[in-house]
Simulated scan of single mutants.
Amino acid sequence: MAELMENEVVRAFSTYAVIVVVKMLLMGPMTGYYRFTRGSFSNEEDVARKSAEEKKKLLKTHPDVERVRRCHQNDLENIIPFVIVGLLYALTGPELSVALLHFRIFAGARIFHTIAYIGALPQPSRALSWVVGMLVTFSMAYRVLNTVLFL
């Protein structure tokens, strides 16, 4: 394992994978923050100690909460494949500069995607950032398949 971590591409991948995974993990507390500050809960047990009248007010959806929740879901759908494909890509021995370009573009696209989603920026800002992230993952997947295809 220590030998593997001496590989610059693997170290670069590890850096950017941790950045996007931590970003994804922060979306959970952000959702909680939005739920509490907007008074919007989705589960009965979240408001169990409230009166029946308060429960009716609090058991509702709120656009801000739903926006953060959907952003988190989108992270799960995109960051997990990036981490898996990116690790395999790093193991194929790509040039460091090309690998860094892939990793940096993906991380930037995901961070911008979150800003665009939470900030409700006009389209196509969010869609373009999503497409850029997906293209990076597909590019790395192509390299992996092109390098190790064994059918």
Score class of each variant (00 low, 15 high):
74 N>P: 03
54 E>V: 06
63 P>R: 12
65 V>W: 00
14 S>Q: 06
35 R>I: 03
68 V>M: 06
67 R>T: 07
11 R>C: 08
13 F>P: 00
67 R>S: 04
45 E>I: 11
43 N>T: 11
18 V>M: 09
20 V>N: 00
28 G>D: 11
38 R>Y: 07
35 R>W: 02
74 N>R: 05
62 H>C: 10
53 E>N: 08
53 E>Y: 08
30 M>A: 14
58 L>I: 05
19 I>L: 14
25 L>A: 14
56 K>A: 14
19 I>K: 01
33 Y>S: 08
36 F>A: 13
23 K>Y: 11
11 R>E: 09
14 S>I: 04
22 V>M: 10
59 L>N: 01
23 K>V: 10
40 S>V: 01
51 S>I: 07
43 N>K: 14
57 K>L: 13
74 N>C: 06
70 R>E: 10
70 R>W: 09
69 R>L: 14
51 S>W: 09
41 F>I: 01
33 Y>H: 13
39 G>V: 06
50 K>I: 06
26 L>R: 11
57 K>T: 08
63 P>K: 13
15 T>S: 07
58 L>W: 02
40 S>H: 03
60 K>T: 12
60 K>F: 04
57 K>V: 07
23 K>P: 00
54 E>G: 06
41 F>A: 02
59 L>V: 05
64 D>A: 13
29 P>N: 08
58 L>R: 03
67 R>A: 06
38 R>S: 07
30 M>D: 03
36 F>S: 13
35 R>Y: 03
15 T>L: 12
47 V>S: 01
15 T>D: 03
34 Y>I: 12
73 Q>T: 11
12 A>V: 04
17 A>F: 00
74 N>A: 06
71 C>H: 00
21 V>F: 09
19 I>H: 01
18 V>K: 01
40 S>L: 04
64 D>T: 08
49 R>Y: 15
65 V>P: 02
18 V>T: 12
52 A>L: 10
33 Y>F: 15
43 N>Y: 15
40 S>G: 09
50 K>M: 15
13 F>L: 01
24 M>P: 00
11 R>D: 07
16 Y>E: 02
74 N>E: 05
67 R>W: 05
56 K>Q: 14
21 V>W: 05
23 K>F: 10
36 F>I: 13
64 D>M: 08
30 M>S: 08
69 R>G: 10
60 K>L: 07
25 L>K: 07
48 A>E: 12
60 K>R: 15
42 S>W: 09
38 R>V: 05
49 R>K: 15
51 S>M: 09
38 R>A: 08
48 A>I: 10
69 R>A: 15
14 S>H: 05
55 K>N: 04
33 Y>N: 10
35 R>L: 03
64 D>H: 11
45 E>S: 14
29 P>W: 09
32 G>L: 08
19 I>T: 05
37 T>V: 14
59 L>P: 00
44 E>T: 10
71 C>G: 02
53 E>C: 07
17 A>S: 06
71 C>W: 02
48 A>F: 09
46 D>V: 05
27 M>T: 05
74 N>V: 05
40 S>T: 03
20 V>L: 02
63 P>Q: 10
56 K>L: 11
40 S>M: 04
55 K>G: 01
39 G>P: 04
46 D>P: 02
55 K>A: 04
72 H>M: 11
38 R>L: 07
26 L>P: 03
22 V>D: 02
16 Y>H: 00
45 E>Q: 15
